[in-house]
């Protein structure tokens, strides 16, 4: 089974040289720490940064330089800063090659819900709806089940949607899966996790074809 760091490391394996990548809040943010040495990617932050770097050294924080999670960050050489309309032009205009974000629920047709629990939690969608509406390559990073142990991979979402038929890949603590033809297709098992455990934790339609390899995580 993977912890949050493990999920981030596995997602980092999906990165390709020359990509611009938008990382959401939470587990996705950790992906930036595990970019393979032999490739170059630039991180886009929806609040107006391209070429976002790591956290600043202690004492060098700048209140004017934060990421979408309001954390202090730095700029890499070659970075640029811009306004919110330009930022979302990059996102909706499909100039960003990969979006990684968290979710409360994902449906077998690629629907995603991650912004609202009616009557309980209403934080807002932020940039998530713009991101999922346009990106061609969307990876969801999340735990396979919620705190009550219920599956987050469902036949259909019960919570208000963030976007429809948009998620292409999911990396959880248990598995790597692809969404196509209205089903979750099992690609890899997390270390030490059996296909049976993944089946038991997946409420939506799960397709298991042939031998499912175990992930290789450094």
């Amino acid at each position: 089974m993977l912890d949050k760091t493990g999920i981030a490391k596995r997602i980092a394996q999906e990165l390709q040289d020359g990509w611009y990548v938008n990382l959401g809040i939470g587990i996705p943010t950790l992906v930036a720490n595990y970019v393979p040495d032999n490739i170059t990617v630039e991180f886009q932050s929806e609040n107006g940064i391209l070429g976002m770097g790591p956290f600043p050294y202690d004492g060098e924080e700048d209140a004017d330089l934060i990421n979408a999670g309001k954390q202090t960050v730095t700029l890499q050489p070659g970075a640029s800063v811009f306004d919110s309309a330009t930022s979302f032009a990059m996102i909706r205009g499909n100039h960003v090659q990969l979006t990684v974000l968290g979710a409360m629920e994902v449906a077998q047709n690629g629907d995603i819900a991650n912004w609202k629990i009616p009557g309980k939690m209403v934080k807002g969608m932020g940039g998530a709806m713009d991101l999922v509406a346009s990106a061609e390559n969307i990876i969801v990073a999340m735990m396979h089940t919620n705190k009550k142990g219920e599956s987050k991979l469902l036949p259909s979402c019960s919570l208000p949607l963030t976007g429809v038929k948009c998620v292409t890949r999911i990396i959880t603590n248990l598995a790597a899966l692809e969404i196509k033809d209205g089903a979750f297709h099992l690609l890899e098992r997390a270390p030490g996790v059996s296909v049976e455990e993944i089946k038991a934790a997946t409420a939506g339609k799960l397709v298991v074809e042939g031998d499912i390899p175990e992930m290789i995580i450094d």
Binding site: E46, D83, S84, A85, S87, F88, I91, R92, D111, K116, M125, G126, G127, A128, M129, D130, A133, S134, P160, L161, T162, G163, V164
Partner: peptide, 29 residues
């Protein structure tokens, strides 16, 4: 949606009364 908010402000200042966006299709928005 954040991108729609930014663009709606930009449009307001730029004399564009409305625009089509993919963000929020199929949702409460």
């Amino acid at each position: 949606p954040q991108g729609s908010l930014a663009e709606r402000c930009r449009a307001g200042g730029a004399g564009i009364p409305a625009f089509f966006t993919p963000a929020g299709y199929g949702t409460e928005v």
